[in-house]
Design a protein around this nucleic acid. Structure first.
Length: 865
RNA sequence: GCCCUCGUGGCGGAAUCGGUAGACGCAACGGACUUAAAAUCCGUUGAGAGCGAUCUCAUCCCGGUUCGAGUCCGGGCGAGGGCACCA
């Protein structure tokens, strides 16, 4: 063993060993319990970032730990390789997206390998390869057959200059990001997947998903958004239009008698009809339609409306109610119309105040006074009906029931459940994605591509120029004959949302080499995923789509389970300080923390940050998520090159619990490096004197026994912290404590050296999931033939944990007043006697009367005076 | 606005089921080694009082439950994240 710790050599050696032995290639083995550990696969954006390192280290620690605990572990890796950034890069550099993507994959694969992750590369998946995406197409055709995939029109952002569809993120302040042209809304036919058919099931199943964080389950439940209420009808008979009913959904049918107006969305049919010869209204409707596309922007805009001049009748009272167009009414939710109850809905209240519409309180909340001038939150609370005729005095549920029954009798309403969840639109008018396998024929219409003609292969050599989908100009791709009638036809040029690619990749890892079928029997062995690890940003879409997709596959008999991810772990983000200068004119300039030197001023009170290149001060903008825009990222590769992969891994696992945010700290990295060096040195010093004789537990003195006890306590803690609590930071802290104790203990006698050998083995093996390379080398040095990765996890020796006496804390009235030592088996009377006899305790009892003595076995004694 | 999470030293954090608050690390300070620096090693480090043994205070604030509260409950303040004109 080398005296100096040289990470580059140590890590190369370990990685070569794992490669040579194919240590991480997983084999199906029905005789062994499997453990499928999966980290969310990366988008090949260029280089790894610290978020990747954190994500994949968490997965790697769990994988290696479970493997040593006897599980048959599968930890695969792949590439979520379709997507918009490749097209952007293509436009910027004139390189086909495929070339850019594959170049990035090569770079990032090298980086992942340098970090020593225990990945089974033989199962690697790349979603932009036909071998993968042909199964997207195949399953899409099954969805078409079952009616789960269907066509309807949808609204897209249209750039009139580039004549292209823009993603929301390409629209900046209502203008195209490249052309600056005002973006138009266009309705075009698109494919949708009927996820709403699964809404109830996707929601109900959340309750049983104990392996998922509460937070993620809550987010999904909110997203699905089940509302139980009443769909009611406001009848009308409008000259020229005739008789009809305006439908609206409400969760507060008990407030029906407080309705003073109705409001409809700009896109509503009644609004369109009223606007025929009402120019101001038509203009307002246009304004609403041109308004913000993103709902969060909609939220901040002022509530506006215009009367349509039309009126409807109240379903119970028959009263005439004016119909308004409101910019706060969404066409996509419910029926695109709301009943306006200003007294009990804040938005309606604001609207009514602004346009001087009547406000009629009809709910009495615990006798509190209602003001027509200022909104109070409790106006929306449930209460007793008042001012509501025959419904007066009824509580919420009774009122809803009575009103729903009356409406039903009148044919003007029924109880109904409304969902927030909408169907999943998967059509993208973009090149770099999986082609949707349909053909447009002049005679036959839209015809699915027959299975035996799959895959529809995407050409890989096109370079998008920003003006429309390049597939539209690619005759070789476009020209096709109709599978039904044989006539000349045209291929669909829309591609699929990349969330389709990631909705089932976790199953394909079980059988990535199968060229004949999407899945095979090996899936039954590996799936579902035992532990899924990824960022909270995927809490809703990716995870919900995957749950939906899995359910559909189950209906086809392809898998036997409903939930694809038994346990979910969401790791926190990686933050770093941000440095900038803000010139009087011009844009803020951000500087990478690597180029900034931070020192303390002479009084050590103030931190001064200086840019190395010019020696001038820069401002600190606090600690925020690492991002390109803030230029505060740390390149993991630089870290690996300077300190090694083990240090990078150790720091990211030690600095914070894995689900919390992690603040970057260069000094913290030094600390991690220092610890590995210390451990290395301790092992080197120990083994350079030769290996000791086997440990004889009975021959130890008290000090040796104490060290041995701490070693086994540490093993127990590391095992529990990694295996159950997932608090890798405290596992590392325990190992550090043990090292500190060993350094103090010293070693001279043969027994000392035997105890030391065991303690070092525990430390090395216990930390091996986190720092696998250095521990691989140290394990060999400690005299083991077998590679550490192939060793079983060590078992705690309960014998070693035994003590003859224990220390107890004594409190008087809950305050710490003394310490006592009693025999391990001491009974309560003995403990009580010892506690009361302690001079410190006596002092605090003083003249008082001892009323009660509480004994918590093994922990403390509390004397109540 | 709603939902979720969280407020602990100079900093990151620990305290797992209500039982010794501040483990471990960083930074800082003092010392050893060195011609010197780096590296390494040893020590000190929540605040206040005291020569000292010790004592008092202290986990965002106010109240409560309890023998005992960082932890549980109620109310507030603050931060972060998610969702959002969702009727």
């Amino acid at each position: 063993m080398q005296e100096r710790y040289e990470p580059a050599a140590v890590e190369a050696e370990a990685q070569q060993f794992w490669n040579r032995e194919r240590s991480f290639e997983a084999k199906e083995d029905p005789g062994r319990q499997k453990y499928y550990c999966l980290s969310m696969f990366p988008y090949p954006s260029g280089r790894l970032h610290m978020g990747h390192v954190r994500n994949y280290t968490i997965g790697d620690v769990l994988s290696r730990f479970m493997r040593m605990n006897g599980r048959n572990v599968l930890q695969p890796m792949g590439w979520d390789a379709f997507g918009l950034p490749a097209e952007n890069a293509a436009m910027a550099n004139g390189v086909p997206p495929a070339k850019w993507t594959f170049g990035n994959i090569a770079t990032m694969k090298t980086q992942l390998k340098s970090l020593g992750f225990a990945l089974d590369w033989s199962r690697e998946i790349t979603t932009c390869r036909p071998e993968y995406y042909r199964w997207n197409q195949w399953l899409f055709l099954r969805m078409l057959e079952k009616g789960v995939a269907y066509q309807k029109t949808g609204v897209v952002n249209w750039d009139p200059v580039d004549k292209t569809v823009l993603a929301n993120e390409q629209v900046i302040d209502g203008r195209g990001w490249r052309t600056g042209a005002l973006v138009e809304k266009r309705e075009i036919p698109m494919y949708y997947l009927k996820i709403t058919d699964y809404a109830e099931e996707l929601l109900d199943a959340l309750d049983g998903m104990q392996g998922w964080p509460e937070r993620v389950r809550a987010m999904q439940a909110n997203w699905i958004g089940k509302s139980v209420g009443v769909r009611l009808g406001f009848p009308y008979d409008i000259e020229g239009l005739g008789a009809g009913v305006l439908h609206a959904f409400t969760t507060r049918a008990d407030t029906l008698m407080g309705v003073t107006f109705c409001a409809v969305a700009a896109e509503h049919a009644l609004a369109a009809w009223a606007a025929r010869n009402n120019a101001p209204l038509a203009a307002f409707i246009e304004e609403c339609k041109r308004g913000p596309a993103i709902e969060s922007e909609l939220a901040t805009q002022e509530k506006k409306g215009l009367p349509t001049g039309l009126s409807v009748r109240h379903p119970i009272s028959g009263e005439e109610l004016p119909v308004w167009v409101g910019n706060y009414v969404l066409m996509s939710y419910g029926d695109g119309a709301v009943m306006g109850v200003p007294a009990h809905d804040e938005r309606d209240f604001e609207f009514a105040k602004k346009y001087h519409l009547p406000i009629k309180p009809v709910i009495d909340v615990a006798g509190r006074e209602y003001s027509l001038h200022q909104w109070a939150p409790w106006y929306a609370e449930h209460g007793r009906c008042v001012n509501s005729g025959k419904y007066d005095g009824l509580e919420y549920q009774a009122a809803v029931d009575a009103i729903a029954a009356d409406l039903s009798r009148l044919g003007l309403g029924e109880k109904r459940i409304t969902w927030r969840l909408r169907d999943w639109g998967i059509s993208r008018q973009r090149y770099w994605g999986c082609p949707i396998p349909v053909i447009h024929c002049g005679a036959c219409g839209t015809v699915p591509v027959p299975d035996d003609e799959l895959p529809v292969v995407l050409p890989v050599d096109l370079v998008p120029d920003g003006s429309g989908n390049p597939l539209l100009k690619d005759e070789a791709f476009l020209a096709v004959s109709c599978p039904r009638c044989g006539a000349k036809a045209r291929r669909e040029t829309d591609t699929m949302d990349t969330f389709v690619d990631s909705s089932w990749y976790f199953l394909r890892f079980a059988c990535s080499d199968n060229g004949k079928a999407m899945l095979d029997s090996r899936v039954q062995y590996w799936a579902p995923v035992d532990q899924y690890i990824g960022g909270i940003e995927h809490a809703i879409l990716h995870l919900l789509y995957s749950r939906f997709w899995t359910r559909f596959m189950r209906e086809l008999g392809m898998v036997a389970f409903k939930e694809p991810f038994a346990n979910l772990f969401t790791q926190g983000m990686v933050l770093n300080e941000v440095f900038f200068r803000k010139p009087d004119a011009g844009r803020v300039e951000y500087f990478n923390p690597a180029d900034v030197e931070v020192t303390l001023d002479s009084t050590a009170q103030r931190r001064i940050a200086v840019l190395r290149s010019d020696g001038l001060e820069v401002e600190s903008g606090g600690v925020v998520t690492m991002s390109k825009s803030k230029n505060n990222g740390v390149d993991p590769q630089a870290l690996v090159d300077e300190f090694g992969a083990d240090t990078a891994r150790l720091f990211t696992m030690f600095a914070a619990p894995p689900e919390q945010t992690l603040e970057w700290s260069d000094e913290g990295v030094q600390g991690a490096y220092r610890f590995i060096k210390r451990l290395w040195k301790a092992v080197h010093e120990h083994v350079s004197q030769g290996l000791p004789r086997p440990l004889d537990g009975a021959a130890l003195n008290d000090a040796q026994r104490a060290i041995r006890r701490q070693a086994h306590q540490t093993l127990a803690k590391i095992t529990d912290d990694i295996g159950r609590r997932r608090t890798f930071n405290t596992a590392i802290a325990a190992a550090m404590e043990l090292m500190n104790a060993l350094a103090k203990h010293g070693q001279s006698s043969p027994q000392d050296r035997s105890v030391m050998q065991e303690a070092l083995e525990i430390t090395v093996l216990g930390l091996s999931p986190i720092i696998p390379h250095a521990t691989h080398a140290m394990w060999r040095a400690l005299g083991h033939e077998r590679a550490l990765i192939d060793e079983p996890w060590m078992q705690v020796d309960t014998e070693a944990l035994q003590t003859s006496s224990i220390n107890l804390v004594v409190q008087v009235n809950g305050k710490l007043r003394g310490h006592i030592t009693v025999a391990a088996g001491a009974d309560e009377a003995a403990v009580r006697g010892a506690a009361l006899a302690d001079p410190h305790v006596q002092k605090f009892i003083g003249a008082g009367q001892v009323r009660k003595v509480i004994i918590v076995p093994g922990k403390l004694v509390n004397v109540v005076v």
